[in-house]
Amino acid sequence: MLRGERFNKADRVIRIGFWSNAVLMAVKLAAGHYGHSGAVFADGIESACDFIAIGLTIIALKVGRKPCDEDHPYGHGKVESLSAILVSLVICGTGVWVLYGAASTVREGSYEAPALIAVVAAAATIVIKESLYRYSMRVGGSLGSPALLAIAKDHRKDAVTSIATLIGVGGAYLGVGIMDPIAAGVTSFFIFHIGVHTFRTSAHELMDGQPEQEVLDAISRLAGSVEGVDQVHEIRARHSGQYLIVDLKLDMPPDMTVKHSHDIATEVKKRIFDHFNNVGDVMIHINPSDEPHEDLIRL
C-alpha cells in the first residue's frame, strides 16, 4: 500500500469520527437538557471529550506522517502512540466525571422523569457508535495505526456507555428514577477499563515493546525461505506509528562474497515489504553460519 493511500484512509476515518462526534455531542446535550436526563446530558459531555481527543489525534497524524529528517532518522510515527496516551487519559477522565455525577445524583436523591427524546438519543448513539467502532477497527487494524485503534476503542466505549445510558434512561422513563444515575455509575467502570487498556498498549509501543509474536514468526519464516539464508539468528521489531521497524540477524555461508550476501539481504527486505505493508524499514545484520559468535550489546 502506497504511503499516500495509507494516509488518505486514516484521514477518512478521522474525519468521519470527528464530525460524527460533533453532531452526537450537540444532539445529546440538547436531548439531555430538554429531555430532563442527567445520564444523556453526561453522555453529551463525554462526546465533547471525544471531540477534543479526536482533534488531538488529527494533529498527531499530521505530525507523525512527516518524513524522517536529521533529528528524527526513524520518522515521527511515535507521536501517534503519544496521542493515544492522551486519548486514554481523556477516556479515564471521562470515567471519573461520569462516576462523580452519578454519585452526586444518588446522594441528592432528586430524580426527574426523562422525556422520550432522551431515550431515542441514547438508542441512536448505540447504533452510530458501534458502526464507527467496527469501521475504525477495520481500517486501523489494516494500517496498524495505534492512533486509529485508540479512537476505535473510544467509539466502542461510547457504545457501551450508551447501552447503560439507554437502560438507565429507559427505566427512569418508565418510572424507576434511580436507574438513570445507577446506569451512569456502572458505565464509568467500563470506561476506566477501556482507558487503562489503551494506555497500557500505547505505553508498550512508546517503550519499543515487541509486536505480536505471530507477526514476528511470519516475518522470520519469510526471511528464512530466501535462498542463501541458512537461518534467522534473531528478529526484533518495534512500532513507529503505523509502521514496524524490523531488526534481523541472518546466518549465511562464511565464504559468500559481500556483494552476494548484500543481494540476498536486499531480496529478504524486498519480500518483507511485498508481504507486510505495515513494515516501514528492515535492518539486516549478517553472521557466518558455521562458527559460534557472541552478540555485542549493552542493553
Rank of each mutant, 00 (worst) to 15 (best):
D11W: 04
R12I: 03
R15G: 02
R15K: 15
I16C: 05
I16W: 03
I16D: 10
G17V: 10
W19I: 08
N21Y: 03
L24K: 08
M25C: 14
A26E: 05
L29T: 02
A31W: 00
G32C: 14
Y34V: 11
H36D: 01
F41A: 15
A42G: 05
A42N: 01
D43Q: 10
D43H: 07
C49M: 09
D50R: 01
F51R: 02
I54C: 01
I54E: 00
G55F: 04
L56R: 05
T57D: 03
A60P: 00
A60Y: 01
L61C: 04
V63R: 14
K66Y: 03
K66W: 09
C68L: 14
C68A: 15
D69V: 00
D71R: 07
H72G: 11
H76P: 06
K78H: 13
V79I: 15
V79D: 04
E80G: 08
S81A: 15
L82V: 14
A84F: 01
V87D: 08
S88M: 05
V90M: 09
C92A: 13
W97M: 15
L99C: 00
Y100D: 02
A102L: 09
A103N: 03
S104W: 10
T105Y: 08
I117D: 11
V120P: 06
A121P: 00
A121L: 01
S131A: 15
Y133L: 09
M137I: 14
R138L: 09
V139E: 11
P146M: 07
P146Y: 03
A147N: 02
L148E: 02
K153E: 13
S162F: 05
I163A: 06
T165Q: 04
L166W: 04
G170V: 09
V176M: 13
P181C: 08
I182G: 01
I182C: 00
A183R: 00
G185V: 05
S188N: 08
S188K: 02
F189A: 14
F189E: 03
I194D: 13
I194V: 14
G195H: 11
G195Y: 02
F199A: 10
F199W: 15
E205R: 10
E205F: 08
L206E: 03
M207C: 11
E212C: 10
Q213C: 04
V215N: 10
D217G: 06
D217N: 10
G224Q: 04
S225I: 11
S225W: 13
V229I: 07
D230R: 07
V232W: 07
H233T: 14
E234G: 06
Q242V: 13
Y243K: 13
L244P: 00
V246Q: 03
K249I: 04
D251Q: 06
D251M: 07
D251V: 02
P254I: 04
H260W: 11
S261E: 06
S261N: 09
H262R: 08
H262Y: 06
D263L: 12
D263C: 01
I264Q: 00
I264E: 04
A265Y: 09
T266E: 15
E267N: 12
K269V: 10
K270P: 02
R271V: 06
H275W: 03
N278T: 09
V279N: 07
G280R: 08
V282K: 04
I284R: 07
I284S: 08
H285Q: 15
I286T: 11
S289T: 02
S289L: 01
D290G: 12
H293A: 12
D295A: 05
D295S: 04
